[in-house]
C-alpha cells in the first residue's frame, strides 16, 4: 500500500521536473542528517579512535597504546561483576515487565467501567520518569522511617529494619523492582494495543468449546500476540540494558559494585577515574555486542516475516 502511494506521488513530480525531484528528498533529509553526523556518527568514530589511546587527565597529550585499554578492561574483575549484574538486571526486569504488563493489559482489556482512569493510573509511573521513580523508591526503602521497613517492623513481621539498598544480596533486586515499577506500563500499553487485534471470534469459539481460560490464553491469545510480544520484549530489553539513572541515584552502584550496571561503569571510568580511553574501550565492546544483537534481531524478525 505504502509503496503504491509513494510511487503515485513520486510519479507526479518525476514527470514534471526529473532533476529537481531527485534532489528534493535529499534537501528534506539534509538538516537531520547533518545533526545525526554530529551527535552519533562523530561520537561513534571518535570513541573507536580514543579507545586506542592513553588519555591522562592532567594533560591533553594522548599517546597511542594499541589494545592496552581493551586488555585493561578485560583484566578488571569489576567488569565481570558489572556484566553479570547487567545481564541479571536486563533479563529480570524485562521478564517481569512482560508478565506484569500482560496481567495488567488483560485486566484493563476486560474492564467495562473506568477503563480510561485505570489505564491512566497504571501509566503514571512511566510518565513521571526515572528520576522521580528513583527518589520515590529511595524514600520507600528508607531503613528507619521508610514505608516498607517501617510497616514491616510496626507489624512485627521483622524485628529490625532491613537495609535493602546497602545489602549485598538485596540491593540489585530492590533496584530491579523499582525499574519494573517504572517500565511495566510500557509493556501493558503495547500488549493492550496488541489485544485489540486478537480475533474475537476465535476467543468466542474457544469459550463455546468450553476451553478453559488458561488454555484459551496460551493457545489463542499468546500466538496472536506473538509479534507484538517479541517487539515489546526487544524494546524493553534494550531500554533496560541502557539504564543508568536508577542505580546511580539509589545506590551509586554499591555496595561493592553489587548493583552497578554497565552504563554506571562506563560513566565512572570516564568521569570518576577520568580515563576517557578506558571508557571508550568499554563503550566499543558494548557497541560490538549490541550490533551482534541487532543482526540477530533483524534475522529473527526477517524469518518471522517470511514464515508469515
Amino acid at each position: 500500500m505504502g509503496a503504491v502511494r509513494t510511487a503515485a506521488y513520486d510519479g507526479i513530480h518525476a514527470r514534471r521536473a526529473p532533476l529537481l525531484s531527485r534532489v528534493v528528498p535529499y534537501v528534506f533529509v539534509c538538516p537531520a542528517l547533518a545533526l545525526l553526523l554530529v551527535v552519533t556518527a562523530y561520537p561513534f568514530a571518535y570513541s573507536v579512535y580514543l579507545s586506542f589511546f592513553r588519555t591522562p587527565s592532567e594533560s591533553m597529550r594522548w599517546t597511542f597504546t594499541g589494545l592496552a585499554n581493551y586488555r585493561a578492561v578485560f583484566a578488571d574483575p569489576v567488569f565481570y561483576r558489572v556484566v553479570n549484574n547487567t545481564v541479571v538486571w536486563t533479563a529480570a526486569s524485562t521478564l517481569a515487565d512482560l508478565v506484569l504488563g500482560m496481567i495488567a493489559a488483560l485486566a484493563v482489556n476486560n474492564l467495562r467501567v473506568c477503563r480510561g482512569p485505570v489505564r491512566a493510573a497504571l501509566l503514571l509511573p512511566y510518565v513521571v520518569g526515572y528520576v522521580v521513580a528513583s527518589y520515590a523508591w529511595l524514600w520507600l526503602y528508607q531503613g528507619d522511617y521508610g514505608l516498607i521497613d517501617g510497616t514491616l517492623t510496626a507489624w512485627h513481621v521483622i524485628a529490625a529494619p532491613i537495609p535493602f539498598l546497602s545489602s549485598l544480596a538485596l540491593a540489585l533486586p530492590a533496584l530491579i523492582l523499582t525499574n519494573v515499577w517504572k517500565t511495566f506500563p510500557f509493556a501493558m500499553l503495547m500488549l493492550l494495543a496488541g489485544l485489540q487485534t486478537v480475533p474475537e471470534q476465535l476467543v468466542m469459539a474457544a469459550r463455546l468449546d468450553r476451553a478453559s481460560s488458561w488454555r484459551t490464553f496460551w493457545e489463542i491469545t499468546v500466538p496472536a500476540l506473538w509479534p507484538v510480544l517479541v517487539v515489546t520484549a526487544m524494546l524493553l530489553a534494550l531500554q533496560n540494558f541502557h539504564s543508568f539513572t536508577i542505580p546511580w541515584i539509589m545506590t551509586g552502584g554499591g555496595p561493592l559494585h553489587r548493583s552497578e550496571i554497565i552504563a554506571n561503569y562506563i560513566y565512572n571510568q570516564a568521569f570518576t577515574q577520568l580515563d576517557f580511553g578506558l571508557a571508550a574501550a568499554t563503550s566499543c565492546i558494548i557497541s560490538a555486542l549490541l550490533l551482534a544483537f541487532a543482526v540477530v534481531y533483524v534475522r529473527v524478525l526477517g524469518r518471522g516475516a517470511s514464515a508469515r
Binding site: L50, H242, F244, A263
Partner: peptide
C-alpha cells in the same frame, strides 16, 4: 541501539 553513555565522552 546504543546507550547514551556511549556518546558521552566524545560529546
Amino acid at each position: 541501539l546504543f546507550p547514551g553513555v556511549n556518546f558521552l565522552v566524545p560529546l
